[in-house]
Amino acid sequence: MVWLDIGQGTKIAMPLHTTEAIVIGGHDLGEVDRIVVFYTEKLGKVRAVASGARRVRSKFGAALLLFTYGRLVFFERVGKGLHRVNEFAILRPFEKLRTDLEVLAHASYLVELLAASTSDEERNEELFHLLLQALGLLEKGHDSFPIARAYEIRLLRSIGYLPELQSCVICRVPLEPATPLAFSPGEGGLVCPDCQSGRKDIYLVSTTALGFLRMALKLSLDRMGRINLPGTSREELVEVLQAYIRHLLHRDLRTLDFLRAYATLWKAR
């Protein structure tokens, strides 16, 4: 909120906000407008109408393309949900994320997960910086796999849904690294061998995969991006995290369908 001095010590509130933001989605509105979804540093997820954004000579130019990081100025329309974009100045376009289909799909997954797991206008600076850092690493050409998995577990912690990774989520017994472990998405964490019997919704987790998840909560995303995981651990991590996320969101993310279809088609060629 900006306070405007109208003289004699009186200030009135102007519903004008300035914040750093990343474009995480959007769709067309009417003939030339666009609704843009931003993840902002100060206000979390914000939806705003960019008038005339689809015109060839729009003042926004390429600024509102997906992943663009910039300084957003928008007018708040109290109680209406949809605000109005006044200005969006590019700070970093993340253009390389849009020039390779596979990188684009992985980066799209990061923003889709963030959009799906957060509510509008709930401030979370940690998530903003997590996304900014992850996009930066993908643009630099780091392996998208460890970055995406570390991003997932850190996002889950930040929104309050960190799965139990230290002790059995059912009987609370602390788990030793050598114990054959399993993960239950429904229970929300690791399950000890005694509590595993009879359960159908469990996924086996190796020590390597569990070690990765625990490390991802402590080390920087940059360092996690350099970790080289064996194929089996990769498969386990994808299975466990995606089953847990599906359980929380009650649906699959669209980008995952895209990645699967793309991989299948490319392998078939």
Partner: peptide, 11 residues
């Protein structure tokens, strides 16, 4: 067109 976010793939 292709759109990972909309789930529109090569098919």
């Amino acid at each position: 067109s292709l759109s990972p976010l909309e789930g529109r793939g090569p098919e």
